Amino acid sequence: MLILRVVLGLTMAAHGYNKFFGPGGLKGTAGWFDSIGMRPGSFHARVAATCEMAAGLGLAAGLLTPIPAAGFVALMLVAAWTVHRPNGFFIVKEGWEYNLVLGASAVGIATIGAGRLSLDHLLFSGTAFYEYLHGWWGLIISLGLGLAGGIGQLLIFYRPPAKTEAS
Rank of each mutant, 00 (worst) to 15 (best):
L123H: 00
I151E: 06
G95Q: 14
G103W: 10
L143S: 15
G108Y: 03
W96A: 09
S142F: 04
A148I: 14
I151F: 12
L119M: 04
G149C: 06
I151S: 07
L145T: 09
L117E: 11
H134S: 13
K93C: 08
S125I: 01
H121R: 02
W137S: 15
G115V: 04
I140Y: 10
L143K: 09
I112E: 04
N99K: 11
T127G: 05
G150E: 06
G103T: 10
G115W: 01
G108Q: 04
A114T: 02
G126T: 02
L139P: 03
L122V: 01
K93R: 15
S125Y: 02
G115Y: 02
G115T: 05
G95M: 12
S105K: 00
G150K: 05
G138V: 08
L122C: 01
L100C: 13
Y130F: 14
G135T: 03
I112W: 12
G149M: 10
S125H: 14
W137M: 11
G115M: 05
R116V: 11
T127H: 02
L123I: 00
A104N: 07
A106H: 06
A104R: 11
Y98M: 11
A104Y: 02
G144M: 07
N99I: 10
L143H: 08
E131P: 01
V107I: 13
G150M: 06
L145G: 15
Y132I: 01
L145P: 01
W136E: 09
I151V: 15
L147T: 05
F129A: 09
L119F: 04
E97G: 12
A104P: 08
S142T: 06
G135D: 04
L147Y: 09
V107Q: 10
L102S: 08
F89T: 13
G138I: 06
S105I: 04
F90K: 13
W137N: 13
L123N: 00
I91E: 14
L147M: 14
V92T: 15
Y130C: 00
S125M: 07
Y98L: 13
G108D: 07
Y98P: 09
S142R: 05
G149S: 10
F90E: 11
L100Y: 10
F90Y: 14
G113Y: 01
G152V: 03
H121I: 00
L100P: 12
V107E: 07
G115S: 08
R116I: 05
I91H: 15
Y132D: 02
L123F: 04
G103L: 07
G144D: 11
H134T: 07
I140T: 15
W136Y: 08
G103F: 04
S118Y: 02
A104L: 15
L145S: 10
F89N: 10
F89I: 14
G150F: 08
S125N: 13
V101K: 04
F90V: 12
L133Y: 00
G144N: 10
G103K: 06
T111A: 09
G115L: 03
L147C: 12
G126F: 03
G146N: 09
G152L: 02
D120A: 01
A106L: 04
G150S: 10
G149K: 06
F124P: 02
H121T: 00
L100A: 15
F129W: 10
L145W: 03
